[in-house]
Amino acid sequence: MSKITELAVVVEEGRIDDVVAAVEAALEEGNAPMDILNAGLIDPINVLGEKFRLGEVYVPELLISSKAMKMGVDRIKPLLAAGDVKVLGKAVFCTVEGDMHDIGKNLVVLLLESAGFEVIDLGMDVEPDDIVEAIQENDDVQILGMSAMLTTTMYAMKETIEALEEAGLRDRVKVLIGGAPVNQIFADQIGADGYTTNAPSAVELCKKLVVA
């Protein structure tokens, strides 16, 4: 087995204690850092992500392997040229004002990150103005993801979209919403660009939106 294949196995099995040594072994073998990055670190996560989507592995397996991948990436980053580590896209995520439910949002963020997105996580109970400010400050953001779990807080999504319009920023980002009380009808009503019911499908949707 080549050292890159061995590394991919280490990542897939989530062996965080072994990953740095495995990256170093692959370097010693003479592999190019770019090949180690793609075949040894990113590929196994894509495989696991797909398995998770199909219900073949549990979420901690994916998240622990993602942790291993990140440790590996940190180790070879100094050896790569700027821009070699590509991000798929950049997003801002939050749970809306008045809402303390952040587990679902966190899961979407974790899966997006493991799929190669960069995510600015504003946390929970975030006011529309603060969301607008975050988008203003980061002009490379393509996606805004908002989560709400309460019938009483979902209307904050509408307010946020209105605030974005007022600030002249609505066309700069695709707005994605999610959480138990919202649905496609509500998404259409408030003029959101997308809605999904779970984290794996949120990742799929984000991938589509950044290509479009």
């Binding site: 219900g55 549990y58 979420v59 901690p60 587990i103 679902g104 899961l107 779970n198 984290a199």
Partner: peptide, 11 residues
């Protein structure tokens, strides 16, 4: 209180 595990496939 309630301590109901998250199903780690469907979350």
């Amino acid at each position: 209180g309630g301590m109901y595990n998250m199903d780690l496939k469907c979350m």
